[in-house]
C-alpha cells in the first residue's frame, strides 16, 4: 500500500525523459514552415493558372456571344471564392492564436471551426454548383450556334449526368464522412468540456 506522497516521490524519481532535442524542434519548425509555404504556393499557382487561362481564352478566342464572357467571369469568380475561403480557413487554423486561450475556449473554437467548414462544404457547395451550372448553360448558348445539334445534346446530357453524380453520389459520401468526423469529434470534445467545468 502506497500513499500519495510515496507515489509523488516515485514520479519525481522517474527516468522517462523526452528524446526530442532543441535542435530537432528547430529543424521541424523549418520543415513545417517550408511545407506550409509550399502548400500555399502550389494552391496559388493552381488558382493563378486557372484564372490566367480563363483570361487568355477571353483575349485569344473571339466568342460570338456575350454570354460566354459572362460564363468565364462566373467561373473565375467561383474559383476565386473557393480559393479565398480555403486560404482563409487554412490561415485561421494555422495561426494557432486560439491555443493561447483556456481549454474550454479552445474546444469551443474547434467546434465552431468544424461547423463552419461543414457549412462551407455543404451549403456553399450548392451555391458553387449552381454558379458552375449557370456558367455551363451560358457557354452552351455559344455552342448552340457552333456545334451540330446532336453533339450539343450529347455534351448537355453528359454534363447533366456528371452534375447529378457529383451532387447525389460523391457529395453525399463526402458530407456523410465529414458529418461522422464532426459528430465523433464533438462527442469527444463535449466529454472533455464537461470534465473541465467547475463542479
Amino acid at each position: 500500500m502506497k500513499g500519495f506522497d510515496e507515489i509523488q516521490q516515485l514520479w519525481q524519481g522517474q527516468k522517462p525523459e523526452p528524446n526530442v532535442s532543441f535542435e530537432t524542434i528547430l529543424q521541424h519548425i523549418k520543415s513545417h514552415r517550408t511545407a506550409l509555404t509550399k502548400k500555399l504556393f502550389w494552391q496559388s499557382v493552381a488558382v493563378g493558372t486557372a484564372v490566367l487561362t480563363a483570361l487568355w481564352i477571353c483575349i485569344v478566342v473571339d466568342f460570338s456571344t456575350w454570354t460566354t464572357y459572362l460564363a468565364l467571369a462566373i467561373m473565375v469568380g467561383c474559383i476565386g471564392y473557393y480559393f479565398a475561403n480555403q486560404l482563409n480557413d487554412y490561415k485561421d487554423i494555422s495561426r494557432n492564436r486560439h491555443l493561447l486561450s483556456k481549454p474550454q475556449d479552445y474546444i469551443n473554437y474547434l467546434r465552431a471551426f468544424q461547423q463552419k467548414r461543414n457549412r462551407f462544404n455543404t451549403r456553399s457547395y450548392v451555391v458553387y454548383e449552381i454558379c458552375i451550372a449557370v456558367a455551363f448553360a451560358l457557354y452552351g448558348i455559344e455552342m448552340y450556334f457552333i456545334l451540330p445539334f446532336w453533339t450539343l445534346a450529347g455534351i448537355f446530357i453528359f454534363v447533366v449526368f456528371w452534375f447529378l453524380i457529383c451532387h447525389f453520389v460523391f457529395m453525399k459520401q463526402y458530407i456523410k464522412h465529414e458529418n461522422m468526423r464532426i459528430e465523433e469529434m464533438i462527442g469527444n470534445l463535449e466529454r472533455i468540456k464537461g470534465q473541465f467545468r467547475d463542479r
Binding site: 491555443l99 493561447l100 486561450s101 479552445y106 474546444i107 474547434l110 470534445l189
Partner: peptide
C-alpha cells in the same frame, strides 16, 4: 503557464 496551456490544448486536440 502559457506553455502548459498550449500543451494541454495540444493534448486535447490529439483526441481528434
Amino acid at each position: 503557464t502559457w506553455i502548459y496551456r498550449i500543451a494541454v490544448n495540444t493534448c486535447l486536440s490529439y483526441l481528434r
